[in-house]
Design a protein around this nucleic acid. Structure first.
Lengths: 207, 207
DNA sequence: CCGCGCATCAGCCGATCGGATGACCCCGGG
DNA sequence: CCCGGGGTCATCCGATCGGCTGATGCGCGG
């Protein structure tokens, strides 16, 4: 028997997961959360084996932050990310935040069940497209940006200036420029517009 | 009684809709499709009152194209778009393709039921955020870029500077800046990076 | 014929960017 | 224990950008 906590801001998705998981005899859904904050609170209170976590959560903290907080709990559950996108940035951020697995919503139900049971035992499961991207990254095909550089890139794509990026990330403008220089270097460009373009094409950023 | 056809590439979403709609006595789900092509075929075969259509369908034709084909059928059903994003481009494309309504997945179930019944009678229903965007669009700003502006945008995405863009398109630097200003205006940004980002997301540029 | 959208061009100016250089701190591994 | 990577910060400066105002020419439709 594996106990589960659901976290997704969409009612239909939660209902879908409930319906799917309800048909599995050895899976029990302890509760559901519509926001990251709620998920953290319920994870602490209910103590499930696995948390199924969406990354896009609308208002409040996002799935990555929720994952970070949940895995920081005493005796934490395993977090299985279940989302729509296989963007590099999302994948690395989720894994760095402590996620045990990364599944796409398009996955077949049987694979979802299998992944949940694997996750309950701490085993990592990645959807095939995700696994491919991770592999490609291993082979050094594409430039590997650090966590922080991806943060900068994200703000950059919002069209923010250096000062605004600095304020958004609580660092100095000088540091932003340092990171930007390295990003340009890794992406082989020398302007912000070029960086955004390459990042979108390499799927380093959601699009 | 209103008969429905579901179209979404995500199993969990379909299951969720089935579960939700199953609890409604005067709604009957005739079938479900996991791709746009399948949805068109099933719509022709089953003749539902309403098709619930997601816009992002993974492989094959997208929801907009599926909507276009379904509304081109003889005695066509009403298409109610049910998606995650309220971006201008998606909304206008869906409506131009013949969609009767445009709902967000985050909508409350009761609103979904109401929208389905409205759609069955040909009435339009828009989620509040969508309605707001449509209104804003009515009031003047329409993001239609001219050919030339798209040319500029293309060079911009290559990371070129104004002087380089000018030389690439055989015009003066001043003209480039004029176009850029108008592009910023239309896209609602004020930097080149922001313009590239929006353009890629709105699919104004190849990605 | 006149208005209007589109494309073209000019000059000005403050704000911002990009590059270069050097520095400090923390942490984990050899 | 020292090295290196990642993150942080500072200063300087020339190049570029973005906003502004204004102007010309062209084609199309009322």
């Amino acid at each position: 028997m594996t106990t589960i906590l659901l976290c997704d801001d969409h009612v239909v998705v939660r209902a879908g997961l409930l319906a799917l998981l309800g048909s599995e005899p050895d899976i029990e859904v302890l509760g559901e959360a519509g926001s990251g904050e709620e998920a953290v609170a319920l994870a602490a209170k209910l103590g499930p084996d696995v948390v199924l976590m969406d990354l896009q959560l609308g208002a409040g903290i996002d799935g990555v932050e929720a994952t970070r907080r949940i895995t920081a709990l005493p005796n934490p559950p395993h977090v299985l990310v279940l989302t729509t996108y296989d963007t590099d940035a999302d994948i690395t951020r989720a894994i760095n935040a402590g996620a045990t697995g990364y599944l796409l919503k398009a996955e077949r139900p049987e694979d979802l069940f299998a992944a949940i049971h694997s996750a309950a035992q701490g085993h990592t499961t990645l959807s095939p497209p995700v696994a491919n991207r991770v592999m490609a990254q291993m082979r050094g095909t594409r430039p590997t940006l650090t966590e922080r550089e991806l943060d900068i890139l994200g703000q950059l794509a919002r069209g923010l200036g250096n000062r605004e990026i600095a304020r958004a990330l609580f660092i100095s403008e000088a540091t932003v420029k340092t990171h930007l220089g390295r990003i340009y270097d890794k992406l082989g460009v020398d302007t912000r517009a070029g960086a955004v373009s390459v990042a979108k094409e390499q799927r380093l950023l959601p699009s």
